[in-house]
Simulated assay, not measured.
Amino acid sequence: MVNKIRLIFLVMLLIPQGIIYWMASDSLLTTNKNFSQIEAVSLASALLLILGMPSLTIQWLVEKPLRNMRELCSQVKGGNYHKLLPLSSEGRDGEDEMVALMRDMNWMARQIEKREKDLQQAVDDLWQSRNQMQVMAMTDPLTAIANRRCFFDTLEQKFKALVCQYQPISLLIIDVDFFKKINDTYGHQIGDQVLLELAKIIQDNTRGGDLVARIGGEEYGILLPNNTSQEAISVANRIQKGIDSHEFLLDANRISVTVSIGVCTLPQPPCCFDKEKLYNYADQALYHSKNSGRNSVSVYDPDNHSIQKVA
């Protein structure tokens, strides 16, 4: 480009010089010493302009806009889309190529910003949907508490953590007494309402760090990390008595509901102890309560493998 501009300047400056020299060739000026000197200086000045003006012209016409465009590209690369190239608001027919290029770069910057926002929104929506699906996968649809999968996943995680720290862990399993009779007598809709109220009573008698889950049709599990045996028994007694004294008045039906509870606590679980055994011990204690007249709490002692009814 520089050579082309130099050629244009050469033609523009040497043509006048040639005309002046041609007009003066047949006159007395050709013998004038001062005229010859002026002509030489003029020619030298024209040559200097030919050498210097193209660079200045390119810097004025091209380098400054290019510098602005590079700055815009750097800002877009860094995620800044607010400072665009300074241009008039409306494009005009016949505007030069550099201005048109700058206008196109502004348009591309705005498009990149829009598509980046759309992409970020799509990612946010995807994460939100993923989180909602995870919650749904871990939640019981009837009672809105944790489901069986969530319960056993958490039991495994908590069990591993507490075993490594030699911290106590307690497990309660709760089963509704004669729940089939409630369904057969009042219908499954009333039975579902009973399960909902039971979930609320159980949650009201546990701590924020405890996990309450529906692990079967009418069976609930409570994971009590860092709870001693006496603390777990106290929780079980509160739940058993709270349900026994609660008035279930559903669709004008006064229903008596009781539960049987099995408790097992590992005060300092050894690393070789299996989490399935903890669940099995609590389950054995539950069936001991059921076989001992129901509406009671039984505790499995893992040290001597004995079960005792405590309430």
Rank of each mutant, 00 (worst) to 15 (best):
R254Q: 12
P269E: 09
G208L: 03
V235T: 00
I173H: 03
M53S: 04
H188P: 05
K117N: 15
S260Q: 01
F159L: 08
A199M: 04
E247C: 06
M53N: 03
G217E: 12
V235D: 07
H305W: 09
V123G: 02
P16M: 05
C164K: 09
L211A: 08
A144Q: 06
A109E: 03
N68L: 14
F151Q: 01
V11N: 09
N131K: 15
P54A: 05
F35S: 01
A199I: 01
S45M: 11
P267M: 11
I5N: 01
F9E: 10
A100F: 13
K181F: 13
V299D: 12
I261F: 11
L51Q: 07
D175C: 07
D26N: 14
Y186M: 09
K290G: 00
D251Y: 00
S289Y: 04
Q308T: 13
Y220G: 04
K33A: 15
Q120V: 00
A46M: 15
T185A: 10
F35C: 05
L249F: 02
L49H: 02
V123A: 12
Y300G: 02
Q157N: 13
A46P: 10
N280Q: 15
S27I: 09
L286P: 05
K241I: 07
D125R: 11
I202D: 06
L162M: 08
Q157S: 09
C150P: 00
C272P: 01
Y81L: 13
V257M: 04
M98R: 04
G293L: 04
L211S: 09
S289A: 14
N237R: 13
I112K: 02
D192R: 06
P65G: 02
E116I: 12
A236R: 00
L172A: 06
V123C: 01
I112N: 01
Q134G: 05
A44T: 03
W22Q: 12
H82A: 12
T185P: 06
F178V: 03
I243P: 05
R294H: 12
A146C: 11
F9H: 06
V2D: 07
S234C: 07
L28R: 14
A40G: 08
K77M: 10
M1H: 13
K160E: 11
K160H: 08
P16L: 01
A144C: 07
A161G: 08
Q128L: 15
S42D: 03
G91A: 10
I50S: 05
Q230G: 10
L61H: 06
I233T: 02
W127C: 06
S88T: 12
H82Q: 14
M23C: 15
Y287W: 00
A40E: 01
I233M: 06
M98N: 07
F178I: 01
A311E: 02
G209L: 12
Y166D: 09
Q75K: 15
L286I: 07
D303C: 15
D204Q: 03
A44R: 11
L72D: 02
S45Y: 11
F159W: 14
G187Q: 01
T228M: 02
S234N: 14
A24C: 13
G262L: 00
S42A: 10
V235G: 08
L28V: 15
T30V: 14
N295V: 03
S296L: 08
I38E: 11
R115A: 03
M136H: 14
D118A: 11
L162D: 11
R6Y: 01
H288N: 11
M69I: 13
A40W: 10
